[in-house]
Amino acid sequence: MIRILKAGLETSIQDYPGRLGYWNQGFPPSGPMDSWSFRMANVLVGNAPGAAALECQFLGPSLEFGSDTVIAVTGADMRPAIDDEPIPLWHSIAVKAGQTLALSAARTGARAYIAFAGGFANPEMLGSRSTFNKAGVGGIDGHSVKAGQDLPVLDGRGTPGLAVPGGLRPDIRTDKAWDIEVCAGPNDDWIDVAGQERFLTSPWTLSAKSDRTGFRLDGPRWTFAEKATNKPKEHGSLPSNIIDHGYPMGAINLAGQTPIILVNDGPSMGGFINPYTVPSAAFWKLGQAKPGETFHFKLVSVAQAQDLAVRIARRCVAGNLVKA
């Protein structure tokens, strides 16, 4: 068991790739925002890359170990410490029963990941252990962890003293500006040429009104193509309205003049256009961005986005680890 002493800010159990195949019934994939850091944490402790682990958002938790185990902390720098002694990120660490792990506020990045040898043993719901807070599904009792809870862990045997080489880790920025890949579509033709150029050349600021459902962006006004302003009535009155259709994960959903990136707990469909889509390989950047930081969007093809995803997956394997 892992006992939660302090919960942190919406610390939750997630697994990868999350809850697939139920979006049409209202259950999004959930899973980790930064799946690169998440998978690396699991690989470090000898788990499968997708095993259930903790996602810690902005402010980390404090935990007490019920037995000897091996852990790893990756992602945002929340200054992890065991019994008040700092430990390195991106390393596998042996811990003893009764010791405590404490994470504080994120110094760089936004989300840290804690993996434990064996992974969590909370019940699977709809094929996943991931937490979907808004529906009370997965995790422990359907919600983020709470102080006083005991989290069950499966048997596992990790190897301490391993590390992820620097070149295989995501480059979690400290300059508060992010270059985010996007693919055009599915509704890019509803935006005029000037509006498309403006989107790709302007800075966009991540709003504090953001969560695991959607990342709201502040930036310049959008301008629309003829098909958005001269359309059948069933599409709605605003240029950004369209007859209800499916949303891809990562869609930049345009609600009036406000773009919202639909992330892990986002809706599956609705009546707004989606001019661009952030591919899964760029989600780690979204997961490590804080409100007030700036996004610059870079257009890539679907083939380029798929290649990025393959390259990340090839890094998240045990054969890439080195002795610390």
Rank of each mutant, 00 (worst) to 15 (best):
R169I: 00
V322W: 13
V300K: 15
R157C: 10
G246K: 02
L200W: 13
K96I: 08
A282N: 01
L238N: 09
A184S: 15
W23K: 05
I191S: 00
A228S: 15
S237G: 02
R39V: 00
H245W: 08
R315D: 04
T74D: 01
G31N: 09
Y276W: 15
K298P: 02
R107S: 04
K6I: 00
R129L: 05
S37E: 01
Y247S: 02
I13Y: 13
D211N: 14
K233Y: 07
W178T: 08
H245C: 11
F283K: 04
A112W: 11
I82L: 12
V193M: 02
Q306R: 12
L217S: 10
A305C: 03
V95T: 11
P170C: 01
T69N: 11
Q196M: 10
T131F: 08
G66V: 06
P80Q: 04
A112H: 10
S104F: 07
N24F: 04
V278P: 07
L321N: 13
N47M: 04
I87T: 04
G250C: 04
G60P: 12
A228M: 07
A52L: 06
S268K: 02
I114S: 12
M78D: 03
S35Q: 11
G136N: 08
P160S: 12
P86M: 07
C56G: 06
D211L: 05
G50K: 08
R19F: 03
G185C: 10
N253L: 15
T74K: 07
G98M: 08
A289C: 05
S237P: 00
V317M: 14
P165F: 13
I312P: 02
K227F: 02
G31A: 10
Q196Y: 00
Q14H: 10
T213K: 10
Q14G: 07
Q14F: 04
N47F: 06
K323A: 15
P28K: 01
F224T: 08
W222F: 13
P291G: 00
N230F: 07
E55Q: 14
P49D: 04
K96F: 12
S67H: 13
I273F: 11
P165I: 10
G31S: 09
G250T: 06
D155G: 12
S207G: 12
E64K: 11
P32V: 09
R169K: 09
D141G: 03
P123Y: 08
V164F: 10
L126E: 00
A313E: 13
I114V: 15
G266Q: 04
G118H: 14
W204E: 11
D77Q: 03
F65I: 01
N320V: 05
Q196C: 06
D307Y: 05
R212M: 05
R3L: 05
V70A: 05
S37F: 01
H143F: 12
R212N: 07
A177M: 09
L103A: 01
P29D: 02
A7M: 01
G319W: 09
A53Y: 11
F58P: 00
K96A: 14
D34V: 12
C316A: 14
G8S: 03
P61I: 02
T201S: 15
A48C: 00
S207D: 13
V263E: 04
L44I: 01
L238I: 03
L321G: 08
D171C: 01
K323I: 14
K176I: 00
A281W: 01
S207C: 14
Y247F: 15
L154K: 15
